[in-house]
């Protein structure tokens, strides 16, 4: 896409102006901030708070679009009941989203846009501006390259920032992004900026050590439901749910009512859920179709391979979070490798 559209360049101070501009335009801006040994998307007011060399945040930016817990509506129980819905969300700008997470947001966008549309997600999404950031490094748990979700990305952002060494290349990805870049008076970038970006991408591509190619994986996994890898891996699995809770494409949620202590009013809440939890697939009278740990582990991995009900929408983008945050060091790329006949 690069060639056809206008490209801009700036320096660190320019990125700071971009953030200030967004804030003065009414956006709450979130960016990757390092705290302790981890990164988090936190509210920022300056680029100085941001670590532009970050690898991955604990939770993906999904937390701001499909939050871990949200109110669906309030209700009052009087004569029968009345239901009131929640107000519209505030405008959010996500600053510094990596390609894997951009792809994940695109998939969630499509998933929640299916009929009937999810009004909560979409209302929030429509009020969200996304500023992508090309990665500057790849760690041992990154595998977007083999998933086709990075390190190069051409959609899913309003603006894409790339650190090209002596400055930042800014590529608009939407009319809104272009308008914003123009309004900040950034200078147009020459071809050398694009060339530098290409060079960075090529370098990044060479540094991937983990791979999980998509080709045929869903079909293969579905044909190997009895493979020993499921039960073997499940012996280590703690069913803690961390893999799915940090996953940028996991969307499953629970719904429950919270009644006030007056027993007259309350809220219906949805809360992020995990198919790794025993209670997830429980049915009436204590029945459970995924009572065994291996069934739950297999269901989640099938889902990430694109073979569950979510299809491509919930499939893996290679961000590596599930591997990093698995206390039992379970690695779905290794499981995929075993299914393909390796190891």
């Amino acid at each position: 896409m690069g060639g056809a559209s206008q490209l801009f360049k700036t320096d660190l101070e320019g990125l700071d102006r971009l953030i200030r501009k967004l804030r003065s335009g009414g956006y709450v801006v979130y960016g990757p901030v390092k705290q302790g040994r981890s990164w988090f998307f936190l509210e920022i007011d300056s680029v100085k708070q941001v670590d532009l060399n970050y690898v991955r945040t604990v939770l993906p930016p999904k937390k701001l679009l499909h939050p871990p817990r949200e109110k669906l509506f309030e209700f009052k129980l009087d004569d029968g009941f009345e239901v009131s819905e929640k107000p519209t969300p505030s405008a959010v700008a996500l600053f510094g989203v990596h390609p894997c997470d951009l792809k994940a947001i695109e998939r969630q966008d499509e998933f929640f846009s299916q009929t009937p549309e999810d009004p909560y997600y979409l209302a929030r999404r429509r009020n969200t501006l996304i500023i992508g950031l090309t990665c500057t490094r790849v760690d041992e748990n990154c595998f977007c390259l083999s998933r086709g979700t990075g390190p190069e990305v051409s959609t899913g952002f309003d603006i894409l920032i790339t650190d090209v060494g002596n400055g930042y290349l800014l590529e608009p990805g939407s009319a809104k992004g272009l308008e914003l870049l123009k309004s900040l008076g950034f200078q147009e970038a020459g071809d050398e900026y694009l060339e530098a970006k290409q060079k960075l991408i090529e370098e990044l591509k060479k540094s991937f050590t983990k791979h999980m190619p998509s080709e045929g994986l869903a079909e293969l996994a579905k044909s190997l439901l009895d493979h020993e890898v499921w039960k073997e891996t499940a012996e280590r699995c703690l069913s803690c749910g961390n893999c799915s809770l940090v996953c940028p494409t996991c969307y499953c949620f629970d719904v429950y009512d919270v009644l006030e202590l007056n027993l007259r009013s309350g809220v219906r809440v949805r809360e992020l859920d995990s198919c790794q939890l025993l209670e997830y697939a429980e049915v009436a009278l204590g029945g459970n179709f995924r009572r065994n740990r291996f069934q739950r582990l297999r269901h989640w991995m099938l889902c990430k391979f694109g073979a569950a009900g979510g299809g491509l929408y919930s499939s893996c983008v290679g961000c590596g979070r599930c591997i990093v945050y698995c206390p039992a060091s379970i690695d779905l790329t290794e499981v995929a490798g075993r299914l393909r006949g390796g190891g």
């Binding site: 998933f111 929640f112 299916q114 009937p116 999810d118 579905k222 969307y251 499953c252 949620f253 629970d254 719904v255 949805r270 859920d273 198919c275 997830y280 697939a281 429980e282 049915v283 009436a284 179709f289 269901h299 099938l302 073979a307 569950a308 009900g309 979510g310 299809g311």
Partner: peptide, 24 residues
């Protein structure tokens, strides 16, 4: 029959492998 939380193919609970009981 599977546990359902949304009925509209979003919450994920009713999946049987690649199928949603609520919408497929």
């Amino acid at each position: 029959e599977r546990r359902m939380k949304c009925g509209v193919g979003k919450c994920g609970h009713c999946q049987i492998g690649g199928k949603y009981v609520c919408k497929d």
